[in-house]
Structure formats: C-alpha cells, structure tokens
Amino acid sequence: MGWSRNDMAQRAARELRDGFYVNLGIGIPTLVANHIPSDMKVTLQSENGMLGMGPFPYPDEVDPDLINAGKQTITALPTSSFFSSADSFAMIRGGHIDLTILGAMEVSARGDIANWTIPGKTLKGIGGAMDLVAGVRRVVAVMDHVSKDGRSKIVEQCSLPLTGTGVVDLIISNLCVFSCAEDGSGLTLLELAPDVTLEQVRQNTGAPFSVAGAA
C-alpha cells in the first residue's frame, strides 16, 4: 500500500521546474536527483559550498576535497562553482534557491516543521536545516506518514523542537500529498498514493484537512 521511498522521490521530482536551483536534504530527498527529467535543467546546490553537483565519482575519480553536505564523495560538472560557507548560506538565506526538498520528523497543519532533534534520543545538530526552511522560496517535506510506533507525523501542533514555523509548502508522504496554505489556514489533500483510500488518510493524519476539488 502507498508509495515506496523511491516512489516518493519520483513524486517529489515532479515539483522541479526547468531552470530551478535546488537544495536536496539527506535521505529520500537525495534520491530525487535520480528522477530529474532529461529535458529539464536543474542545478543542485550543496550547502558546504558548491553549485552544480555532478553524479557520484567512478572509483578512480574519488577526490577527498570534493564532497556534498552529506559528506558523500561527488563530482563537479563543467559549469560547477565553489564558494565559502558564508557565500553558500547567503545564497540560501537571501532567497536565491528556488526549491528545497527535506526529510521531516513532524509537520504541522500550519506548516511548522521539526526535523533536527529528538530530545534525549539524538543529538545530531542543526546543520543547514533552519537556514533552508527560512530562506528557500518553496519547501517540500518528504516523510513517512506515520512513525514506527504508529503515531501520525502530520499533526495539529509539533511536539518536537522546531526547525522553522509556517514554512512548509507541500508534504509528500507514503500515503498522499498535502499542500499547506500559505496563510496558515491548514492542509489540503491533493493526491492519494495508489491503493490508498481517503479513509486511510483520515485515520492516519493527526490534523484536519480539506480535500482538493471537494466542495
């Protein structure tokens, strides 16, 4: 039932537009790079200081001075550029990046997102997450609809420490796609994953939502 990780990445790739500058988070968002349409020019930014990320290197091309924000070895393209962390975040915070696709632990109906820590469980740090949600024009959260212990990750009010408030524009879960209204008025169900019913989404969502096209 529903979408696999790869399906979710494929669905997220439909948010790309020709000419976009895009920052992809770690995990499922990284897979979005595999689904960029061949007739579309999309430039990937890596917040450690690179624009124009290429594919992973062949074994004999590995360069320790060339990594992405997930510390993976990558390659450059003929049109790539490198710059300092301050320049990189000026790009992000200055509103020059068109789209970011990020993982999330919780998203609220008004677009708050929590994705950096679970108190008492993990201390990974903040990294670039708060800058991305605050500065990028369009924020897409890709996430499992329900946590491993069965609780909805799409909620009325986040319980985890926030990454940003009122910033998420679109939620892609393994069950469906929701838009978050810019004015904070709530969620609208846009699409169901294959073989998923409206009732299943209602049962698994911790916040009220309207259904696109329904009166």
């Binding site: 962390s85 975040f89 670039g128 800058d131």
Partner: peptide
Amino acid sequence: LNPQGTLAERI
C-alpha cells in the same frame, strides 16, 4: 549549537 548559516555569518 548554531544553524550553519548563522554560524558562517557570525564569523
């Protein structure tokens, strides 16, 4: 802990 962009800009 700082957001990475805030850390860079503070420096």
